[in-house]
Amino acid sequence: MVAKQTGRHEVPKRPRGLNRGDIAILACGVLGFLSFTFGGPLLDQHGAAAPGTITADYSSGTSSIQLPLPLAVSGLPAAPSASVPAAAAPVASGPVLPEASAPQRIVYPKAAMDSAVHPLAPDSSAVESQTIVPPTTMDGYWLTPFGTPGNGSGNTTYIIGHSWEGRDAPFNHLSSAAVVGDTFDVVTETGTIPYRVDSVTTYLKDSLKDSPIWDMVPSRVVLISCYTEDPWGKNVVVSASPAAG
């Protein structure tokens, strides 16, 4: 008799599929490649990107813009109305301005800046921490609780924006090209206002909230970004007043 052979048949092993850990590692690699290739902003960001703008992933925790103490003590000041009569504002001689209204664009040729401006209101977290960061775009962001440029303005207008690492971005040039005496235009809902740069200053980030840039100066415009030579430690601040047309 021929004995029957017994034993288990070998079952071919199936290739192992990707598990969650593999997918996470792969995703991190892709995001890292995109960040290295396309660059990222030098300001930390926790808001949503504006539609139609270029964004990129980047490492968080780099920096932020500090707000003045009154925001944390008494809450947000009321945003000035565009319909405030001229008599309500301090009387001062100067160029005739269109009625105060929301800024929509900055055109600063000598600093290679032509940037859209969007409204940005600090949320409760920003008020409590006295810090704010703009969305991760190359546009400018107008801090709505403060001033509005134009006739009837009751405070300084603050416009903030990211400087970017690895890309040419409009706010980068404030650190290298902005000079006292330069002129730029702020386009508003009611007209275009020419401004002349009064000062270009760098501040340590942790001292910005206590600096004189937060003084209430009607119709003044202040542009703020990271100082590109020390983006984690300093901000660059460009202060400007309405210029004669």
Rank of each mutant, 00 (worst) to 15 (best):
A82W: 13
A82M: 13
A82P: 15
A82I: 08
S83R: 14
V84E: 11
P85T: 10
P85G: 12
P85I: 09
P85H: 13
A86Q: 14
A86E: 14
A86W: 12
A87P: 00
A87G: 06
A87I: 11
A87D: 12
A88S: 10
A88H: 11
A89V: 08
A89Q: 10
A89G: 09
A89L: 10
A89N: 08
A89I: 07
P90C: 14
P90V: 12
V91C: 09
A92Y: 08
A92W: 06
A92S: 14
S93P: 11
G94I: 09
G94S: 12
G94D: 09
P95N: 10
P95Q: 08
P95T: 10
P95L: 09
V96R: 14
V96S: 14
V96E: 12
V96K: 15
V96H: 13
L97N: 03
L97A: 07
L97Q: 04
L97K: 06
P98C: 04
P98F: 01
E99R: 15
E99L: 09
E99C: 08
E99Q: 12
A100W: 07
S101E: 01
A102E: 08
P103V: 01
P103M: 05
P103S: 00
Q104V: 08
Q104H: 06
R105N: 15
R105F: 14
R105K: 15
I106Y: 01
V107P: 01
V107T: 07
V107Q: 06
V107E: 08
Y108W: 14
Y108D: 03
P109H: 06
P109Y: 04
K110F: 06
K110L: 07
K110G: 01
A111Y: 03
A112R: 15
M113I: 04
M113C: 02
M113F: 01
D114A: 05
D114F: 03
S115G: 01
S115Q: 00
S115R: 02
S115D: 01
S115T: 06
A116L: 05
A116S: 09
A116V: 05
V117C: 08
H118G: 05
H118S: 14
H118A: 11
P119D: 06
P119R: 03
P119F: 05
P119C: 04
L120V: 01
L120I: 04
L120E: 00
A121C: 09
A121E: 12
A121T: 14
P122S: 02
D123V: 02
D123T: 01
D123N: 15
D123W: 08
S124R: 04
S124T: 03
S125C: 04
S125Q: 09
A126N: 07
A126W: 02
V127P: 00
E128F: 07
E128D: 10
E128I: 04
E128L: 13
E128W: 08
S129T: 09
S129D: 07
S129Y: 06
Q130F: 00
Q130S: 11
